[in-house]
Design a binder for these strands. Structure first.
Lengths: 146, 146
DNA sequence: CCTTGAGTTGAAGTGAACTTCAAGTTGCAG
DNA sequence: CTGCAACTTGAAGTTCACTTCAACTCAAGG
């Protein structure tokens, strides 16, 4: 089966070789090795990298992405159906996130204008159906204590 | 004018005192000092913190947020009009970002299913009207080289 | 007045997601 | 076969957005 060395794979995926090695260490992607220990990537791995990049745009951490990718079959190249199932899952996450941002958009001007931006009662804060934007950052807004 | 010590201000804003000191060092917020060198915050600073938190949810870096806040008047407490102008600007950013995520949502399943997720020609990649999701991360997707 | 909780500082630590570096190895074009 | 770009590794460095720590000072109730 045709494989790509890391430089070509990096060029095709738009991800730096160093990042690809990092992803591999973190268990997000896999590669085979030549007899001389150099990485060779299956073309199907491109789809994994694409998924990683898309999930990152949505604000998902590599750890969560790894967990999601773990649902793909280990022993065979994932089929369209495998990918479709996974992407349906992410579609829902994406929709949640879109909903949050739409609410933010609808209320931003009003809230700032009216001065309710005291964070106490404004519904920009503490939305029940939040989706973590980032692992770090001001978790209190989106993930209030208690 | 009535001011709040850092603990109270932290409680009301939902941001830890350490983060507030950090924001001050970075020039995002300001405080006055007591004779004994303790910080006292104007209530109007709460609005700044709220703005910071909202912008962060949208995926904006503190540096960009600082630059945006720099447009507020230095010498007087910002009025509703000042805030409205600023928030109108961010509303547009938010709308761009929502549009990107909607396109992502509409094409995710199809793209993954069809295999075009090779990142070459799929329109999930290299959208012309991107908005940086994060300062770090895979800028190539959203900010392709050359 | 005195205690004690709240505040002060600079410096160092954290975690995520990488990148850079040094020193060495591999693979292929000529 | 040789030369050189591309590859390998582990370790250390980077940026962002904070947090934690140590050592100290301030403010307010009893």
């Amino acid at each position: 089966m045709e494989t790509l060395p890391i430089g070509d794979f990096a060029a095709r995926s738009g991800v730096a070789p160093s990042a690809l090695r990092y992803y591999e260490r973190e268990g997000l992607i896999r590669s085979t090795r030549t007899t001389g220990n150099q990485r060779r990537y299956l073309r199907s791995e491109l789809r994994r990298v694409a998924f990683i990049k898309i999930a990152q745009q949505v604000g998902v951490s590599l750890e969560e992405i790894r967990d999601a990718l773990a649902e793909l079959p280990e022993n065979r190249t994932p089929t369209k159906a495998d990918w479709a199932r996974l992407s349906a899952h992410w579609r829902r996450k994406l929709e949640e996130r879109i909903a949050i941002m739409e609410r933010l958009r609808d209320q931003l001007t009003g809230c700032i204008g009216c001065g309710c931006l005291s964070l106490q009662r404004c519904n920009l804060i503490n939305p029940a159906d939040r989706l973590a934007a980032r692992g770090s950052g001001p978790q209190m807004i989106i993930n209030p204590p208690s």
